[in-house]
Design a protein around this nucleic acid. Structure first.
Lengths: 352, 352
DNA sequence: TTGAAAGCGCTACCAT
DNA sequence: ATGGTAGCGCTTTCAA
């Protein structure tokens, strides 16, 4: 019970000794693939391992085999339901494949993202999954690409969850299409004048959703006024802030507020309420993502559904699919899985 | 660009060769601690490493040093905001300490939890943090203890986030006290007849909160009728189900519904609504945890606040604090950090 | 089938 | 200060 007693862990060697066999035989009976071991020995080894409480050192295995059983997942913010739901999917898929998942947080900071990818490469993960990354526009983009390509050249696999990250495998989120469909659906419901709570202009996801929404309106001859767009953080607080700002600037003619993510929409709804407006009654509200909670809020939120858990699972499968040479839509070995997105109408957008 | 081109990764040896120095010198200039290296050499090495795109193999370092930089976090369900918020805290603390976090999911299944701990031990993490584990009552409890003790004897550290897991270090959540305070606060607000949405009887957290709630009522001479308690899954859907069941059985005289977790409370509120009851107006509702979203729902939820992110950070600090021999309240090297819990009154429990 | 031994990439000790 | 070199725990040839 003393603090520093650190009895060293049981090694394979200990087991071999105890079982009276060679290291090699011990290895083969415990972790080896082919069953080339006499059952008598094998049993003795297994028994000794059990008795001694042997646990194979994964790292040592990794360096000996030159391959790990790790999947690295990069997310902007794990406490954001969007990412934690995706993470849940990745973990499910990984566990059923006997892989361990490491999660790192990038905070939507390209610099941090790059640094994290570098650090993670040291772990030699089998797969790196990047969610919520923006491959476009940042000065670090080229470096990121280079880093990831190098990773792939060393046998690693990368999968993006985003809009388009060619030449890397991607679970394709059609943000533009989804937002467009949403806009059209809202017009169909009778809404005519819109405001948007958007993320920072540097975030591609936000931009795509904004643009898609515009497209959808345009298809019906409707316009989105510049002063009806507010840009802030891609967070709940950002949503609150943006809605507050819009309100201040005047939202009298607006009949629907679209927030480019559900999390932002929730913040925005609180802002509306704090300003004395009732979402759904005084003003329609719509979001994007369909995170689990939005069906439980009041009014329940109209949004665009992304099957988040599935996206996580798919990302992992995709990475391995590519590894096995099975290519999808893309040319040249990189592939892509489109994900079905769908507008979910709820109480926050009653027919007008 | 061929699929199988797998150019092997650059090793420290390659760098040493390129720089014209020995392996040892290369190691020292790149990852060594003391600055015992001539700047001329050091520069040449760093330069070569840079040029070749060398990235140290963490696993190899780990086996050579006999120590890793990994923290393992076990949670019941990462998509549950309770756990993802804790995870966020753990990750923050870990990153600032240069550690990598691995997350595994146990699904509140003791068997799975045990298996996961075993598997994780193979990673030789520095620390194992167990959140949402129930050390009590399961047949696997003894095995779990044994496994964790063995892990500690090999130099690992474990920290629990729960009620009480002696002899292991614990970030102590006073579920009973919190629930008791909540009950008293509700009585003070004028509520007199209560129903509870609880988790499975096997989950200690749920039991503690239930018992604490009872205690609080009892302190005011109030009673909790058995038929006003429903047990189900510790999830949103469980909450919905339980509330539905209670409603079916008759809730006419009840003026407040307490769900032992916020997530369950959200499900329960939806159930009430679907049954035509307006939470906060027809029936007070309270939860537990104070997950981020509950301030944004309508009515905002009265609950017991746990500083979730802080809890995650503290858990990691605690584990390391213990490692450094600084002991807290406990005797014999194990220690404990109590976390301040506080009742947050919101709109779901207007004064009666 | 089994065992001896050569790595895997890196660190740390021991001389020089 | 630097360079050999012996491990770290494990896998995997290669003989036997």
């Amino acid at each position: 019970m003393e603090s520093g007693a650190n009895k060293p862990a049981v090694t394979l060697n200990d087991v071999a000794l105890a079982a009276g066999v060679s290291l090699a035989t011990a290895s083969r009976s415990l972790n080896g693939s082919a069953r080339k071991v006499n059952d008598t020995y094998r049993l003795r080894v297994v028994d000794a391992a059990q008795r001694l409480g042997y646990i194979p050192n994964l790292f040592a295995q990794a360096v000996a085999k030159g391959a790990t059983t790790t999947v690295a997942l990069l997310v902007a913010d794990i406490s954001d339901p969007y990412f934690s739901t995706i993470a849940s999917g990745v973990i499910q898929a990984a566990e059923s494949a006997g892989l361990v998942v490491t999660i790192a947080v990038t905070g939507r900071n390209p610099e941090r993202e790059l640094a994290t990818v570098r650090a993670l490469r040291g772990q030699r993960p089998r797969v790196m999954i990047l969610a919520g990354s923006r491959m476009a526009g940042s000065p670090q983009e080229a470096d990121l690409r280079k880093e990831l390509s190098a990773f792939e050249e060393n046998g690693g696999r990368v999968a993006f969850i985003s809009q388009n990250a060619a030449p890397f495998a991607t679970v394709l989120l059609d943000n533009r299409g989804g937002a467009r469909a949403l806009a059209e659906s809202l017009v169909e419901l009778g809404y005519r004048c819109f405001a948007v709570v958007a993320g920072p202009p540097t975030i591609v996801t936000s931009q795509d959703r904004l643009q898609g929404f515009r497209d959808g309106l345009a298809a019906h001859g409707l316009d989105l006024a510049e002063h009806h767009i507010a840009h802030t953080d891609f967070t709940r607080d950002g949503g609150y802030q943006a809605a507050t700002d819009l309100l201040q600037a005047g939202l009298d003619d607006v009949d629907l507020l679209f927030a480019v993510s559900d999390v932002m929409a929730m913040g925005a709804m609180s802002a509306l309420r704090d300003a004395g407006l009732e979402p759904g009654r005084d003003l329609g509200v719509a979001g994007y993502d369909d995170i689990p909670t939005v069906r439980d809020i009041t009014p329940s939120l109209t949004t665009v559904r992304i099957p988040l858990e599935e996206v996580g699972r798919r990302a992992l499968e995709l990475a391995f699919g590519v590894a096995q040479g099975q290519d999808g839509a893309g040319q040249g070995g990189s592939s892509t899985i489109p994900v079905v997105t769908e507008v979910v109408r709820r109480d926050s957008t009653p027919r007008r």
